[in-house]
Design a protein around this nucleic acid. Structure first.
Ligand SMILES: [Mn+2]
Ligand SMILES: [Mn+2]
Ligand SMILES: [Mn+2]
Ligand SMILES: [Mn+2]
Lengths: 163, 163
DNA sequence: GCCGCATTGTAGCGCATGCTACAATATGGT
DNA sequence: ACCATATTGTAGCATGCGCTACAATGCGGC
């Protein structure tokens, strides 16, 4: 790297140069974060419904580590976006759209955790990292992870004993 | 999963149940996002300085895919946090702290890209995914990725390119 | 030196996430 | 039925990330 060491210290030299296309991968931060949050919410809601029979705002708040106020506000947004339905003083339900998203999020989440563990990461670390990584794994990368899992399962326990 | 299939459809049954500890991995979303943004900024600033000799707000804006206004505001925050220094109508400089962070971010970024490519992901996909994944990879996971890279380079005599 | 244009900065908006404090409703135990 | 308590909802605040529109400054060509 640093092929341009010549002008690396000449302040008034070249124009942009290092990034008309890098911007492609940087755009849309805000919407991206909102989508991540939506995924975590519907996933948690689905989990509560599966585990408790219903998703209450309070339990969701505990599950997500935020206050119930934050939950209620965000759930309002999710309802606006057609992912959940709510009625005053009642529990939260997923729409078809929300259920679909939750399913994808959950599948992705689990695959990432499994992959990280197979890579040799401690379970608690895998779970922690997956919580963030899951939102940035493309379908292509997910497939590559699955492929790795298949091959690493075949090759007995330790696939990388090349040491 | 779903050991509690009994009450899985009985709305008024069990309390929280599925998440007093899952919350640990969910907290702090907002600060987390701000930190991610800071990492991307100092990394981009360092890159511009290395490539152009200086980091101008406009170029940074192009590189990050946002308007110059957004850049200026965020840079103000970074200055407040001691990562950069600026003077009116002059380019942006990294503090020691900022340079350190940029170095770590860059190293992490590249390792993640390399890892994804080694996993069999297309270069453009690897770069796109890495842009988000990089912020959620713990040191432990990073080490696991490095280990995988070492073993995979030995195994298949393919990439490597050690001169 | 002057002026036009690029760059930088400011004002003000929208939206999302988080919070505390307080109000309203629901629910369960007696 | 009744009231204490839990749950849900509202009001208002703060911060961060985007944006457009417009103002101020800087700079390079003439
Ligand atoms: Mn998840
Ligand atoms: Mn998550
Ligand atoms: Mn990066
Ligand atoms: Mn990034």
């Amino acid at each position: 790297m640093v092929l341009k060491s010549k002008n690396a210290s000449k302040p008034g030299s070249p124009p942009p140069k290092s990034g008309p296309e890098t911007a492609v991968y940087q755009r849309q931060t805000r919407l991206q974060h909102a989508q991540e949050r939506a995924q975590d919410y519907v996933e948690a809601i689905a989990e509560l419904i599966a585990g408790c029979g219903e998703a209450r705002a309070t339990d969701l708040a505990k599950s997500l580590g935020v206050t119930h106020v934050t939950v209620i506000r965000t759930v309002q947004r999710l309802q606006r976006e057609g992912l959940v339905t709510t009625q005053p003083y009642r529990s939260i339900f997923l729409t078809d759209s929300g259920r679909t998203l939750a399913g994808k999020a959950r599948a992705r989440h689990e695959k990432v955790v499994t992959f990280l563990e197979a890579l040799g990461v401690a379970k608690s670390t895998a779970r922690a990292d997956a919580e963030g990584i899951e939102h940035h794994v493309s379908d292509e990368t997910l497939k590559a992870m699955e492929k790795f899992l298949r091959s690493s399962r075949k090759g007995s326990g330790k696939p990388t004993r090349t040491y």
